[in-house]
């Protein structure tokens, strides 16, 4: 972690990207640039909500083809705090419904003169598809079960803030790994920064093949809890499951919900994250979610800082 707050007068030379499509292709250095910038934004805006006019005259388009509250709001607010204009396009139905393709929709929005498109879509690869077909910058705000880079980065920032560094920590991602874009972005980012990553959940949602990527695989939360520095509790994505991968929610909660009994067996300084929205009583009991180990609300605050950092890095350097 940098001891000095980053200078926000110019985008660092180490940042050369026009898009943020995934964490998998970022270097550890690039991740640190984003996190350090986020810290700088957080400190600059900590005591006031005054705007920082770094992106005045720029326009950010939210292109959300899947329901979202916090990510879309967070990106909008981040853009406005930087002085940029925002436009919102939401379509929960298929873009096919009016016969227009997803790419055409995006091109139409781009033609209104936007500098960056922030896209969420149920299909993996859609951010990549837009990056190839649009001239403006593209930020992936979640593509199916593939990646959700700003969520992964804000989770990592929340860990770094509390624990000082990532290297050497044991971080378990618990739950629906199969359908979680947040899990994938976390796995890449945490590994690049030197954490030991465990994926834990029912065997139908946690492929043993993660081991081939250097990730520890577990189906037994109780067995790994005592070793973990951080638990990141992922939401069960009922909407992405074509067949139910476990017998009942009740059984899932019995085996994998983070409750005070399990907390009692964890390290005293264990940090608990949950990228919202959370299913209270399924992945996490309310006492744990609202308890002192939980960083759930810090995650939301850090989300805003990370998104300001990403927008600034992507748009601030190529004016």
């Amino acid at each position: 972690m940098s001891t000095e707050v980053m200078d926000l007068s110019a985008v660092p030379e180490t940042w050369t990207r026009r898009h943020l499509l995934d964490v998998e292709s970022l270097s550890a250095e690039e991740i640190h640039v984003i996190l350090d910038s986020a810290v700088a934004f957080k400190e600059s805006t900590a005591n006031c909500t005054q705007k920082m006019p770094l992106l005045t005259g720029r326009t950010c388009a939210n292109l959300f083809f899947e329901p979202s509250t916090r990510t879309r709001t967070s990106f909008s607010l981040a853009a406005r705090r930087l002085g940029a204009d925002t436009i919102d396009f939401s379509s929960t139905g298929s873009s096919l419904s009016k016969g227009e393709t997803f790419i055409d929709t995006a091109k139409n929005i781009e033609a209104m003169g936007v500098d960056v498109v922030i896209v969420r879509h149920r299909t993996p690869g859609t951010a990549e598809l837009l990056a190839e077909n649009l001239r403006c910058s593209v930020i992936n705000a979640g593509d199916g079960a593939h990646e959700h880079p700003t969520q992964g980065l804000l989770d990592i920032l929340s860990i770094r803030e509390r624990r000082g560094q990532i290297a050497g920590l044991t971080v378990a991602l618990v739950g629906d790994i199969a359908h979680s874009r947040t899990a994938r972005s976390n796995i890449w980012g945490l590994k690049k920064l030197g954490a030991h990553v465990i994926v834990c959940g029912p065997s139908t949602l946690v492929s043993p093949r993660w081991a081939e990527l250097g990730v520890e695989v577990s189906n037994d939360l109780d067995a790994i809890i005592p070793r973990c520095d951080v638990l990141n509790l992922l939401r069960i994505q009922f909407e992405r499951q074509s067949t139910r991968p476990f017998p009942s929610v009740r059984e899932y909660a019995h085996l994998y919900a983070m409750n005070h009994e399990r907390l009692a067996r964890a390290k005293r300084d264990i940090l608990i994250l949950a990228p919202g929205p959370i299913n209270r009583g399924v992945e996490i009991t309310p006492d744990v979610a609202d308890g002192p180990h939980s960083a759930i609300l810090e995650q939301v605050t850090n989300g805003l800082a990370v998104r300001m950092a990403v927008l600034w890095l992507i748009l601030g350097g190529n004016s």
Binding site: P124, G144, A145, H179, R184, R209, L213, S242, T243
Partner: peptide, 18 residues
């Protein structure tokens, strides 16, 4: 294969594709 778009393997795991 319901909903599948590619071979199920390490690559589909990484890409999050069914």
């Amino acid at each position: 294969t319901q909903g599948g778009v590619m071979h199920e393997g390490l690559v589909s795991l990484v890409l999050g594709l069914p």
